[in-house]
Amino acid sequence: MAKRGEKTRQKILDSAEKLFARRGYHGVTIRQITEDAKVDTALANYHFGSKRNLFDAVLLRRAEELNKVRLEKLEEIEAAAENGVASLEDIIDAFSHPLLDRSERGGPGWKSYFALIAQINNSPEWGGKLMTEYFDPLVRRFIAALKRALPEAREEDIYWSYHFFSGALVLTYAETGRIDNLSDGKVHSSDLDAVQLRMPPFIAAGFRRLCETGGPKN
């Protein structure tokens, strides 16, 4: 019974993730989710209680895995680094690679999850609260590593640099196809392996330009 209940719960989460990513939180009903999952609506109420609880469960399910892998990767590069201070490129890679790798190879569920995160990040209604709740403890750990990698930088420049990095990630895993059109098909927004080769050195250069030159000049 417990195994069957967990299977049903995961089916509901999968359908909710897919539909929330396509239509947004307000564009989906519990009934539509349970119809997609081919389960009785009462089971969604039993497992989650409300649509908001289901939405939170969708976000938490993959956030826990993603945050665990990112933290393990950061700890690994710090343990291997001299004096425990990892390079800027390695820190950026530890933050971005698990995300891009899952979007590239993790299947349609991860694609839906990242599309949903892109929506949330760009939403005044959800962005600040939900991203703070699910990701800020991990982000603060990475920002501490960035401060050690750039010890002379002003704190405000570290935070702005992270902000720009986060925006680049959101645009990238949204896979809008815009770069496909701009390049006349020479590159593709879905080619996340190509992204991963280029993003760490590009973002690291931006961090250094802003943080190692004393910030912007008036």
Rank of each mutant, 00 (worst) to 15 (best):
A115R: 14
A42D: 05
T172A: 07
Y46C: 04
E35D: 14
S50H: 08
R148M: 10
E76R: 14
G84Y: 09
S189Q: 01
R209D: 06
L59D: 01
I77S: 11
E35N: 12
K18P: 02
R22M: 13
E125T: 13
I117C: 08
L60R: 15
P108K: 10
Y46H: 15
L74A: 11
A94W: 01
A204T: 01
N67E: 05
M131I: 14
G177C: 02
E133A: 12
A168Y: 08
T132R: 15
G214L: 00
E17H: 09
F207L: 01
R198P: 01
A57Y: 07
G84A: 09
H26N: 13
H26A: 12
V170M: 02
H26G: 11
A57R: 08
S87R: 13
G109E: 08
F135V: 06
I203K: 00
H26W: 07
A2M: 07
H97K: 14
S183F: 01
P151M: 06
A16R: 06
A194P: 00
L100S: 10
D193P: 03
F55C: 10
P200G: 02
L197M: 09
F207M: 02
L146T: 07
L171G: 08
P124Q: 08
W110S: 06
T132D: 08
G24S: 03
A144V: 10
A168H: 07
K38Q: 14
L59Y: 09
E75L: 15
D36A: 14
V58Q: 09
S103N: 09
V195I: 07
L138Q: 07
I30A: 12
G49A: 09
Y113P: 02
I203E: 00
T176D: 03
K68F: 06
A16S: 09
E72W: 04
D56Y: 13
A2Q: 09
I120T: 09
F55D: 10
S190G: 10
I30M: 15
S96Y: 11
T41S: 08
A115T: 12
Y25A: 06
M1H: 13
R9P: 03
G215I: 01
A149G: 07
A37V: 11
G107Y: 02
A94Y: 07
K18I: 04
Y25G: 05
E152M: 07
A205C: 00
Y113G: 02
D157K: 01
E35S: 12
F55Q: 10
S112G: 05
L13S: 05
S166H: 12
Q119G: 10
T8H: 11
E152W: 04
I158Y: 01
S189A: 14
L192W: 04
E65C: 05
H163R: 12
I117G: 04
G167F: 00
R178H: 03
I143G: 04
A149S: 15
S15Q: 02
M1S: 13
K18E: 13
F165E: 10
I143Q: 09
A80L: 13
A149D: 05
D36R: 09
V69P: 04
F202N: 05
